[in-house]
């Protein structure tokens, strides 16, 4: 079977990606001041990978939707998706202003039907299975659509994720692209210390018939290059080594920021110290 599609290698501007991600982080911190909790740290860890997917990999069908499909399986990372969709003009800024209010449409997990949201996720371990079904349907329809799905390492502890990974390998879904936000933290603790059998990860995907590559998930250029160079004929997993809370020093690798919003003083420090992230 021929490779269905390859991203243009030269078309991705990593400097522009860094600038965009700086803007996304600032926007999320701003919104954090209006709500009690918004999962900032898990949004920051998957940010560069999500930006590469939207800006460097997915093809746009028309101004309001993409030809390819993206699922935020780690639903609690949706703040990243929201600010990217806002920047792309798909999601209205007014909706982000109404985030998590009864007047708005956006909650702390993606809800199908909202602009740019393909599936309702939030319960972990669901997105990959849905993505497998989508990729299979696109194959049946002889469509060239690619399916992209962002998973957290924590949700790979769900058995359902491995049922889906195994099935994707069985079906040799070459139009399925998994991006793994390997930030080493589930909600409670550091997985490499408490759940050591979870590692190694790349080899597990390879054993299930996937093509898998590990890169620095905050290096947009490396993420794009790895995804664009996939060989095809098999499902593809890009394992992005990331830092939970990346971009705000006091949030990095500190579990409380999985959920908590910064207070006024913390917000001021975060905004003051915010800088472009390249690795």
């Amino acid at each position: 079977m021929a490779k269905t599609w390859q991203a243009p290698l030269a078309a991705f501007d990593a400097a522009a990606a860094r600038a965009r991600c700086l803007g996304y982080r600032r926007r999320i911190l701003d919104i954090s001041q209006r709500v009690g909790a918004l999962h900032a740290a898990p949004a920051f860890s998957c940010m560069e990978m999500a930006d590469v997917i939207y800006h460097g990999l997915m093809r746009r069908g028309n101004p309001t939707e993409f030809h390819d499909l993206f699922l935020m399986s780690k639903g609690h990372g949706c703040m990243t998706q929201y600010v990217i969709l806002e920047e792309l003009g798909i999601l209205a800024s007014a909706e982000l202003e109404r985030y998590c209010t009864a007047e708005g449409i956006l909650g702390a997990h993606p809800d199908r039907g909202n602009p740019g949201i393909e599936a309702s996720t939030g319960s972990l371990g669901h997105g990959l299975g849905i993505a497998v079904g989508m990729a299979y349907a696109e194959r049946l329809k002889r469509s060239d659509r690619q399916v992209y799905v962002m998973l957290s390492d924590g949700e790979l502890q769900e058995g359902s994720s491995w049922e889906a990974a195994m099935m994707a390998g069985n079906l040799r879904l070459d139009n399925l692209n998994l991006f793994l936000d390997l930030n080493d933290f589930s909600g409670l603790e550091r997985m490499s210390e408490t759940h050591t059998a979870f590692y190694p990860v790349r080899e597990k995907f390879e054993a299930f018939g996937w093509e898998a590559l590990a890169v620095n998930g905050h290096d947009a250029q490396a993420v794009h290059a790895a995804a664009a160079a996939r060989r095809g004929q098999r499902p593809f997993a890009l394992i992005g080594k990331t830092v939970k809370g990346r971009g705000v020093a006091f949030m990095e690798n500190v579990p409380i920021w999985h959920y908590r919003s910064p207070n006024k003083e913390e917000y001021a420090i975060a905004i003051r110290d915010l800088a472009e992230v390249s690795s």
Partner: peptide, 9 residues
């Protein structure tokens, strides 16, 4: 899960 993804498409 597959049924859901297939129905979505």
């Amino acid at each position: 899960g597959m049924c859901a993804g297939m129905a979505l498409r």
